[in-house]
């Protein structure tokens, strides 16, 4: 009995810890004045979310979250920070007025969400966690085959689009460089 209780407690503590990590990270993203710190806070949040996934038995999604989100997307975001901005020079948040209105709006939203979440009755079927990777792989090639192909096309198109945007910028830049060289001469 003691054993059982302690187990539950451990898993509960684990959840609260992960939830805290996630939310504190999120607050860091929202409130930090330095954009680079925001980025690192985002990483903490993402790790917390990955932990929640694992806690929910979604091993594959958690692993993808770690690899793709933190390994890929976050790095891209930090890149864009470092490529565009001298760190900590510009003021990164908006006026008091704006923030006040935002806080009010967001609190209203939060209240509404919490109200509906707690009020609703969830028909929960407690499931035993089984490894999901094989099932997801199977599903992606059967009932989700079309969305899967579609999302591949979307990803491809957006990457090509990103490349085109960046390329045009690069060309402009080289033109500018040439201009400046000509001006120097």
């Amino acid at each position: 009995m003691m054993d059982l209780i302690s187990q539950i407690t451990v898993s509960g503590l684990m959840f609260w810890f992960l939830a805290a990590v996630t939310i504190v990270g999120g607050l860091g993203v929202a409130l930090s004045q330095n954009i680079l710190y925001s980025g690192f806070c985002l990483m903490i949040t993402l790790i917390g979310v990955a932990g929640l996934y694992l806690f929910l038995g979604a091993d594959f999604v958690g692993a993808v979250q770690l690899i793709v989100y933190i390994g890929g997307i976050l790095v891209v975001i930090l890149f864009s920070v470092l490529l565009t901005k001298r760190i900590g020079v510009d003021k990164t948040t908006s006026s008091w007025m704006n923030r006040g209105v935002s806080v009010l709006g967001c609190l209203a939203l939060l209240g509404m969400l919490l109200f509906s979440v707690t009020k609703a009755t969830w028909r929960v079927t407690e499931t035993v966690s089984t490894p999901t990777t094989a099932r997801i792989g199977d599903g992606l090639l059967r009932e989700y085959l079309f969305p899967f192909e579609l999302i591949s096309v979307v990803l491809l198109m957006s990457l090509v689009g990103a490349m085109v945007l960046a390329r045009r910028a690069a060309k402009d830049n080289s033109g500018q460089q040439q201009d400046s060289i000509e001006r120097l001469q």
């Binding site: 999120g26 929202a30 954009i35 923030r99 935002s102």
Partner: peptide, 17 residues
């Protein structure tokens, strides 16, 4: 998390933020 995200989108002026 959603509300925090909403707040970030609403108040930050940095595009990356």
């Amino acid at each position: 998390l959603f509300v925090i995200g909403m707040y970030t989108v609403a108040t930050r002026r940095h595009a990356v933020a």
